[in-house]
Design a protein around this nucleic acid. Structure first.
Lengths: 216, 216
DNA sequence: CCAAAAGTGTTAGGAGTACACCCATGG
DNA sequence: CCATGGGTGTACTCCTAACACTTTTGG
């Protein structure tokens, strides 16, 4: 920012977004199959170039909307990757984001150079282009950490949900099982949940539905 | 990364480094007085453009060395700031880093456009250019959090130090006082410290010197 | 012997963890 | 009446936090 003004026109800036969801008891990431070189046919994270007059956050939201039709999601900057060799086309610095979406909420519109898209379990990834496997790893770690010492994960569920659903969500993200009584005691003691009067009628004993207290 | 290849030559990429130290019982940041416009005469973080063939980390190390003569320090990527209006000269995305240096270890060489440099208590900042006050705030928060749930702060002390020095360091970073007995019990129980046989002879009762177990 | 900083244990409360049974419903 | 998932309490351990006096040295 200080120092001499060497102009670095060679560097391009992109955003890439690790869209995560939990479905079928698995933590999954949204990948798009590339229709163009390089890595044509391989899967990659949604993302694209940052435009001249938008913030980085705005670029991430825009790409997410354009490439996957996903809107109104939780989005957080993750880390910036800038190895000179990370993109064979030239020098590209990418600001990685991660997003959380409720299961079954992504229309998955294919973009111009995206032949196909799909959800993949983070432990069952296909061949993924660029340094995107590393970026996905960062996102998974971040989500797990956040879940440990904040009370997140809310963004991955519908407005009303049972405690069992919430617990299964946590288990899927953390990759281990949790004690039912301890989980309920802890999550209820945070005061972040409000019990609704509705029950989920599931064929067996009805389960109470909860909602998150509208923080902010 | 996917999507159409709109070239964004307008964006420039810099690194800015929040160099932190603890001196005189205060958490301080290294600022350089700008010798050129914009914000001439104001203080700013050391930093500069990322070169064509270096990683972001390498750029941060290089700028730190060039502008302040600081070498071999702890350095970690913090966050990336990309508001289109953050730099009046044009579109500049900056990858912010923070560095930790032991007190009194920075030669503070003035760079070409840096008329002067100095350490400022993070609660007593002068007028600071760009969005650098915000970046400093991010760094201070990150350091405080890291100190809470990892056992960091090691990088801010000389190789050998007394437990009282270490405690004062923690107190300066956290901005509150800590109980001596609890602090010692906790820090010693981590096994990260090794007691040397040397004592610091300070005029009063001698204090044992400790060192950090060479992790990594 | 006085001033100054080093060094040292115990107790109480809260958080986390392990663990097993009864309940309500639909079929 | 049975199968299925919903729902509940207690005991133990460990970590944290509060709290005060003795020791060693130099002057």
């Amino acid at each position: 920012m200080t120092k001499q003004s060497v102009h670095q026109h060679e560097i391009q800036v992109t955003v890439d977004i690790v869209v995560l969801t939990v479905d079928d008891q698995k933590l999954k990431v949204l990948l798009i199959q590339r229709g163009i070189a390089p890595f044509k046919g391989q899967f990659a994270l949604p993302g694209g170039f940052v435009l001249a007059n938008e913030t980085l956050d705005a670029a991430a939201f825009r790409e997410l909307s354009e490439e996957t039709g996903t809107e109104n999601v939780y989005l957080e900057q993750l880390y910036t990757f800038g190895d000179p060799k990370r993109d064979p086309r030239g020098r590209v610095v990418t600001v990685a984001y991660y997003a959380l979406v409720p299961a079954g909420n992504s229309p998955l519109l294919a973009g111009t150079d995206a032949a196909a898209a799909g959800w993949f379990g983070v432990d069952e990834l296909p061949v993924v282009a660029f340094d995107h496997p590393k970026i996905i790893g960062y996102a998974v770690n971040r989500l797990r950490n956040k879940l440990e010492y904040t009370s997140v994960g809310f963004e991955l569920l519908p407005k009303k949900f049972t405690l069992t659903k919430l617990q299964m969500l946590h288990e899927a993200i953390l990759g281990r099982s949790l004690d039912k009584r301890n989980f309920r005691r802890k999550i209820l003691s945070t005061g972040l949940l409000i019990a609704s009067k509705e029950m989920e009628i599931t064929g067996r004993k009805p389960a109470r539905l909860y909602a998150f207290r509208n923080l902010k």
